[in-house]
């Protein structure tokens, strides 16, 4: 399978690998996927008092496309508001990385992961779910 240069770059030099303390109130954590399915993504956002995503980190168990998708989305969400980050579509990730059809699910997982992280942050901070919804 031939992968795009962007995908390979994200796989070989993944951005924002790591973890925040998930107990901090400013941190939202999304854990999606399942080991039995061959991919698990943990995506974390650190949100400022103004509701801006200041930093993002990920850890992913999965194929190169899953690693690249999570790396890319951590780059994209930084500096965005929660609402903006929640509006990122998997198709944008798939297009940017030129994911082959069998790997589209990796981009869906990345979208799910950011939504889950936002939802976790909102729950912690007593905010209504609607804010993260589309």
């Amino acid at each position: 399978m031939a992968y795009s240069e962007k995908l390979i770059d994200h796989y070989e030099n993944p951005r924002n690998v790591g973890s925040f303390d998930k107990n901090e109130t400013s941190v939202g954590t999304g854990l999606v996927g399942a080991p039995a399915c061959g991919d698990v993504m943990k995506l974390q956002i650190k949100v400022s008092a103004e509701g801006i995503i200041e930093d993002a980190k990920f850890k992913t168990f999965g194929c190169g496309s899953a690693i690249a998708s999570s790396s890319l989305i951590t780059e994209w969400v930084k500096g965005k508001t929660i609402a903006e980050a929640g509006a990122i579509k998997n198709s944008q990730i798939a297009e940017e990385l030129a994911l082959p059809p069998v790997k589209i699910h990796c981009s869906i997982l990345a979208e799910d992961a950011i939504k889950a992280a936002i939802s976790d942050y909102n729950t912690k901070n007593g905010k209504a779910e609607v804010e993260a919804a589309e």
Binding site: Y3, Y11, F61, C63, A66
Partner: peptide, 11 residues
């Protein structure tokens, strides 16, 4: 364990 085979092959 804890490393997915396809990503390992890619590396």
């Amino acid at each position: 364990a804890y490393v997915e085979g396809e990503s390992l092959l890619m590396g």
